[in-house]
């Protein structure tokens, strides 16, 4: 018996060690295999759409798609620069701007894809994601809450403790809310409205973009603000969730595809795949993210939001920082309310 055990432990150790060696514990075996590595912060619907486009056009098995949260991928882009494992990246556009400015890490795109709006030469959008209010219908009924029609309604004291929003310091999802407020009420007005919303949100000012939906689903709060398509999916799934397009507008942020410039080591397939995703993936992508981005596309999906709007200024990091300051001021103001 004793020997059996000893053999077992030795066997286990040997198996683990050999597995480690075989799986290339000490080498980045990727480059040799020629697979294009794609890092993405896209949601699973968008990932599926991109995979379908690639697989249907002869790239099946020639790429490896890895998803990250926006924060983590943002950190990786800034820290790793062109040393990043990925050949191709899809990511929130303004992060790509920052990364390019910091590390000059992306190539100019080598294909034409005429967009309705103008974008830098090194990336082109895959999706435009809109913001919306969403509610837990059971909680609304249970607490006799009136349905809000606009963001300003959320400052109504009846909603105290029933609202969850995202903090623009930590997550860009909150920028969708901020753009709507600033463009409708001006910077000072936005600060005031936001202070009212923050007061009602109390402990539910979240650092993660997905947290408001999580709390609305769990019945912790009745109302949240976040990505519209996620609420649409929940409603379709039969959850007690409904969404409301605020009259201030459904603003949007784009996520784009960019090709990492690895000099001589660049994988030529990466550029082809970027093109393939845009040329062949947009149709399916538009089913989830209905906004038209490219010329020839139309806004006729049934999922289309009621008030699609575009912020009058370019969405730069400087603008984001300005909006962060408005949010910080609103937090101070909220404490005085």
């Amino acid at each position: 018996m004793k020997n059996v055990k000893r053999h077992m432990s030795l066997l286990l150790a040997a198996a683990m060690l050999s597995a480690a060696v075989l799986t290339g514990c000490g080498s980045g075996s990727g480059a040799a295999s020629g697979e294009v590595v794609i890092y993405t912060n896209a949601d699973d619907e968008a990932m599926e759409a991109m995979k379908h486009a690639l697989d249907a056009n002869g790239y099946e098995g020639k790429y490896l798609m890895q998803s990250f949260g926006t924060s983590e991928l943002g950190g990786k882009l800034l820290a790793e620069g062109t040393n990043i494992e990925a050949d191709l990246v899809t990511m929130s556009s303004f992060y790509l701007d920052s990364a390019q400015e910091e590390n000059s890490m992306f190539k100019d795109l080598e294909f034409d894809a005429p967009t309705i709006d103008e974008y830098p030469s090194f990336y082109t959008p895959i999706t435009a994601q809109e913001g919306a209010i969403f509610v837990n219908t059971e909680m609304m009924a249970e607490n006799n809450l009136p349905m809000p029609a606009c963001l300003k309604d959320l400052t109504n004291p009846v909603y105290e403790g029933q609202i969850s929003v995202t903090d623009i310091q930590s997550s860009s999802t909150a920028w969708l809310l901020m753009q709507a407020l600033v463009s409708t009420y001006g910077e000072d007005g936005a600060e005031e409205v936001l202070a009212g919303i923050y007061k009602n949100a109390g402990p539910h000012i979240e650092s993660s973009g997905s947290a408001p939906l999580k709390k609305v689903r769990a019945g912790e709060v009745a109302i949240g603000f976040g990505l519209r398509h996620q609420a649409v999916a929940d409603k379709a799934d039969g959850l007690p969730i409904d969404y409301i397009d605020p009259t201030e507008g459904n603003f949007s942020l784009t996520e784009s595809v960019a090709v990492v410039d690895k000099g001589d080591k660049s994988n030529p397939l990466a550029m082809e795949m970027a093109e393939c995703i845009i040329k062949n993936g947009r149709e399916e992508l538009q089913q989830t993210y209905p906004l038209a981005i490219y010329e020839g596309e139309t806004n006729d999906s049934e999922n289309l939001s009621a008030y699609p709007m575009v912020f009058p200024e370019p969405l730069t990091v400087e603008l984001l920082e300005k909006h962060q300051q408005i949010s910080e001021n609103a937090k101070v103001l909220a404490e005085e309310l």
Binding site: S71, E72, G74, G75, L78, A79, S98, D167, I168, Q169, S170, S171, S172, A174, W175, G202, P203, H204, I205, E206, S207, S208, A211, V317, L320, E321, Q324
Partner: peptide, 26 residues
Amino acid sequence: PASVGGEFEVVATVLYNEMLGSVPNF
């Protein structure tokens, strides 16, 4: 704290916002 911190702000959250917030600054 990200889940249940509420309005009781802690330094780990500040760290996260600076490092990996919407405008990451190492």
